[in-house]
């Protein structure tokens, strides 16, 4: 994982280790947050409108958004 702003020289091996550990411990809590937030919003929408399909749409949107966030923060 090389950040675009830094050259190879400035990065030490322990930085990679830290980034990896940070990412590994953050991913579950991001995905959980995404599911709770957007799944919850979808569930509320389903209750108000009576259209059941909003709940799964919200859950999937939450997973997609949180994985996108993890990818942009720790990936590349």
């Amino acid at each position: 994982m090389v950040m675009p702003a830094m050259s190879e020289k400035e990065r030490r091996p322990e930085d990679d280790g830290r980034d990896f550990a940070n990412a590994a411990w953050s991913i579950p809590s991001y995905v959980l947050a995404g599911i709770i937030l957007y799944g919850g919003a979808g569930w509320l929408l389903s209750r108000w409108t009576g259209v059941a399909v909003f709940t799964p749409i919200g859950v999937i949107l939450g997973v997609v958004l949180s994985i996108y966030l993890v990818y942009r923060k720790f990936g590349r």
Partner: peptide
């Protein structure tokens, strides 16, 4: 930094919930 502007609207709540509520809970 480094994300398209409009997407912050969707991602900031996830960051908030993840860092300030779910992380200490887990």
């Amino acid at each position: 930094p480094g994300l398209p502007k409009f997407i912050y609207f969707l991602l900031a709540p996830i960051e908030f919930l993840s860092n300030l509520i779910i992380a200490p809970f887990t």
